[in-house]
C-alpha cells in the first residue's frame, strides 16, 4: 500500500520535501475558496484548483483548471482535497482517482452510502487512500494542513490523533497541546457510516510512523469500528500507549446524532460495547475530552516504571 507519510511529507532530498503539491477540487466555491486561503496561510503547497467553466482563472494566486487531468499533468500532484456539494462528490472523486491522485481528502457531508462504497472500491483498484467523506482532513502540525481544521489547537509533537469527529479532534488536540503532548499527525476519518480509510486502516497507515510515541483514538457511538480496532490492537500486539475517547454515551438508541454514522441499533454501535472491547485491549477510555492527556500521561508513566 502507498505510504501516507511519504505522500504527505516525502523523503529528505526530494525536491518537494515537506512541500508536497496539493490540488483543490471546487476551489471557487465559498467554502473551498476560504479554506484554500487558510491552507496557503498554514504553508500548504496548494498548486492548482479545479472548477469546470473557470479554467484559466486564478484564486488566491492559484491557477484554476477545467479538469483534474489537466491539473495533475500540469503539477504532478498526488494529493487532492474535494469541496464540492455531496451530489457532485462521486464524479469529482472518480475524476481525481482516474487522474492518478493517491491521497484524496473528501470534505463533503451527506454523501450517499452507495457513492461512498463505489469510491472505496475504486480506491482499492487504484491503490489510493481516501480520507472521509465528512472529514475535517489531515494535519501534520508545522508541515502541512489539508482540511478545514483551524490551526490553533495543533502543536508539533509525537502523538497521533485519529478521530471520527471534526470538532472533537480540535478539542482533544487542544487539550493535548496544552498538556505538552504535541501531535505528529491528526487524521480525521469522517463521521459517515462508510469511511474511505476506516479506523483500522487509519491506525495501520500511521502506526509505524517515525515520530509516533502514542496514539489517541477519538470515537463515537455507531458501527463497530472501535471494537474491530481493539481486537486488531490485541492481535498485532501493538505496544505503544493508546488512549481512547467515545462520544455519545448518553444518546438515545435508534436516533441519528448529527453524524450519519452515529446511531445505535440494539447493542450494535453502543458505547458500552466499545468500552468493554477497549478494556480487553488495555486501552483506557476517557470520560471527557479533558481527561485524555491525563490518561495518556498515566500510560507513559506506567511504561517508564515497567
Amino acid at each position: 500500500m502507498v505510504d501516507l507519510f511519504e505522500l504527505l511529507i516525502g523523503k529528505e532530498g526530494d525536491k518537494d520535501y515537506k512541500k508536497k503539491p496539493v490540488i483543490v477540487q471546487g476551489i471557487t466555491g465559498k467554502f473551498g475558496a476560504f479554506h484554500t486561503q487558510q491552507m496557503l496561510a498554514y504553508g500548504t503547497n496548494v498548486v492548482a484548483g479545479v472548477t469546470p467553466g473557470k479554467g484559466g482563472q486564478k484564486h488566491a494566486g492559484v491557477p484554476i483548471y477545467e479538469t483534474m487531468n489537466e491539473a495533475v499533468s500540469a503539477t504532478g500532484a498526488k494529493i487532492s482535497i474535494i469541496f464540492v456539494p455531496a451530489k457532485f462528490f462521486l464524479s469529482a472523486a472518480v475524476e481525481a482517482l482516474e487522474s492518478g491522485i493517491k491521497l484524496l481528502i473528501a470534505i463533503p457531508e451527506h454523501v450517499p452510502v452507495k457513492d461512498a462504497l463505489t469510491i472505496v472500491d475504486l480506491a482499492k483498484k487504484k491503490d489510493a487512500i481516501v480520507v472521509g467523506p465528512n472529514t475535517p482532513g489531515i494535519i501534520i502540525p508545522g508541515i502541512i494542513k489539508i482540511g478545514i481544521m483551524p490551526a490553533s489547537p495543533f502543536k508539533e509533537g509525537r502523538i497521533a490523533v485519529i478521530s471520527r469527529s471534526g470538532t472533537l479532534m480540535y478539542e482533544v488536540s487542544h487539550n493535548l497541546s496544552v498538556a505538552n503532548f504535541g501531535q505528529s499527525i491528526c487524521f480525521g476519518i469522517g463521521g459517515d457510516p462508510i469511511n474511505g480509510a476506516p479506523l483500522i486502516q487509519a491506525f495501520d497507515t500511521i502506526r509505524n510512523g517515525a515520530n509516533i510515541d502514542g496514539i489517541v483514538v477519538v470515537g463515537e457511538i455507531g458501527g463497530d469500528a472501535e471494537e474491530m480496532l481493539a481486537q486488531h490492537i490485541i492481535d498485532t500486539k501493538f505496544d505503544k500507549p493508546v488512549v481512547a475517547y467515545i462520544a455519545g454515551r448518553a444518546a438515545p438508541k435508534e436516533k441519528r446524532m448529527g453524524h450519519a454514522g452515529a446511531i445505535v441499533y440494539g447493542n450494535y454501535g453502543s458505547a458500552e460495547s466499545k468500552v468493554s472491547m477497549y478494556a480487553k485491549a488495555n486501552v483506557p477510555v476517557a470520560k471527557r475530552p479533558a481527561e485524555v492527556p491525563m490518561l495518556l500521561a498515566g500510560k507513559f508513566e506506567k511504561g517508564r516504571i515497567k
Binding site: S163, T167, G191, G248
Partner: peptide, 10 residues
C-alpha cells in the same frame, strides 16, 4: 459538530 455536542450531552 456532532461529536462535540454528543460529548457535551454525555
Amino acid at each position: 459538530g456532532a461529536g462535540l455536542v454528543m460529548s457535551t450531552l454525555d
